[in-house]
Structure formats: structure tokens, C-alpha cells
Simulated assay, not measured.
Amino acid sequence: MTHSVERQDTAIQNQVLATCLLAGRIMIEGGSEMYRVEDTMRRIAVNAGEPQTLVFTTPTGIFASIENQPYIQERPISKRSIDMEKVTRVNQLSRSFAADQIDLDELHAALIKLDQNTPFFPIWLQVVSAAVVSMTLMVLFAQQYDWIDMPLAAAVGALGFLVDIKVNAVTNIRFISELLGALVVGLTAWLGVRLGL
């Protein structure tokens, strides 16, 4: 009977750690700050009845264990981007769990669903958004509304973002795609200035 209870406790602890690590991985991959990730993971553990959970996060991996237990779980972080919608959704699920609106199994299932179903905007809308952001950043850096340079800034930003997307689809190495996108932005802006545009 004692072994059965211990196995059940271990299974629950494993489920708590797995849920914490999944929430943490989604948040880190979505661009959340490390202290927020650790805070959310600890809150999930405390609300699941494991207040002695130890959490350690890095940009490339997360670790969690329960104090005085002989095992630790870790998850690698394979990609990073900016997806505040996912981060916000993890926080909402964590709050629902804390308010006893969902149980641990439902939280884990909802996190798996969130992780697998990432809504993306169409590429054309992302490119248009990059153009708009580039215009607003030009106004911010120039500290004036230069109506002549705004279309060039929009075109340069959109082109650089499009190169980044296309190269990333081919190489899947983020550094190379960002480097080439930045190179296109710099060269296109320089060319526009040289041509008097």
C-alpha cells in the first residue's frame, strides 16, 4: 500500500513538473522574460500543491525539480521568437488554474493544444506590418515627419523582412536569415540615399 501511494505521489509530481516545463518552454519560445517564466512556473507548482518546486531557466533550456526529491526534469529551448499572444494565453491558463476553474490535467492539455496550434498572420500582412513599423521607426529616429522618406523606409523594411522570411524558410538558421535581411535593409537604404530618393 505504501509503494502504491508513493508511486501515485511520484506520478503527480511528474505531472506538475511536466506542466510547469511546458508552460515555461512556451513562454520562453514566445519571447517572455526569464523572471516571468520562473514566476509562472512556480505559481503553477504552488497551486498544484508542490510549493517546494525549484525552477531554473536559461535562454537554451529550463530545469525543474521538487526539493528533496531524487530527480530533475529539463526541456531544451530549440527556437525563440516574439509571440506575446502565446505568452498571454499561458498566463491566462495559469490564472484559471489558480482560481480552480481548471484542474492540472486540463491545464496540461490546454498548454499542449496552445503549443501545437500557433495562429500566424498571412505573410503579406506580416510584410505590410513590417513596412508600417519601418515608417514609424524612421519618424522616431529622425524626430520629424519626413513625408518624402517615409515610403522609402516602408519599402526598405518590407523588403528586408521578406528576405528574412524567405532565407529562414530555406536555411532554418535564424542568424543567417537575420544577417541577410539586415544586409538588404542597409544596402537598399544606402542605394535609395545615393540615388536621391
Rank of each mutant, 00 (worst) to 15 (best):
85 E>S: 13
53 T>C: 06
117 N>L: 13
108 H>Q: 14
77 I>G: 10
110 A>D: 12
100 D>A: 09
93 L>N: 01
45 A>G: 11
64 A>W: 00
75 R>Q: 05
69 Q>K: 14
66 I>A: 04
103 D>G: 09
79 K>P: 01
86 K>T: 01
123 I>K: 12
47 N>I: 04
115 D>K: 08
111 L>S: 01
116 Q>L: 15
53 T>P: 01
85 E>Q: 14
119 P>E: 05
92 Q>N: 10
77 I>W: 05
76 P>N: 10
57 T>I: 06
75 R>V: 01
113 K>T: 07
110 A>Y: 03
71 Y>F: 09
65 S>M: 13
73 Q>E: 10
122 P>C: 15
120 F>H: 15
53 T>I: 00
116 Q>V: 09
49 G>N: 11
103 D>V: 06
42 R>Y: 01
50 E>V: 04
57 T>H: 04
55 V>L: 04
80 R>N: 13
104 L>E: 00
60 T>C: 05
104 L>W: 04
95 R>S: 06
123 I>A: 13
80 R>W: 11
97 F>T: 01
78 S>T: 15
56 F>D: 10
114 L>S: 14
61 G>I: 02
56 F>Q: 07
104 L>T: 04
102 I>H: 01
101 Q>A: 09
63 F>W: 06
79 K>V: 12
85 E>V: 15
75 R>D: 04
83 D>S: 10
74 E>L: 15
84 M>N: 08
75 R>S: 05
105 D>N: 07
113 K>V: 05
57 T>E: 05
120 F>T: 15
117 N>Q: 15
55 V>I: 14
125 L>C: 13
103 D>R: 07
120 F>D: 14
108 H>G: 04
104 L>F: 08
88 T>G: 10
89 R>I: 03
104 L>I: 05
79 K>F: 01
49 G>S: 08
45 A>I: 03
49 G>R: 07
59 P>W: 05
57 T>Q: 09
120 F>V: 15
111 L>W: 05
53 T>L: 03
84 M>F: 11
103 D>M: 07
124 W>N: 14
94 S>I: 02
108 H>Y: 12
73 Q>Y: 09
55 V>K: 00
72 I>Y: 02
116 Q>I: 10
111 L>T: 00
49 G>F: 02
107 L>A: 02
86 K>I: 07
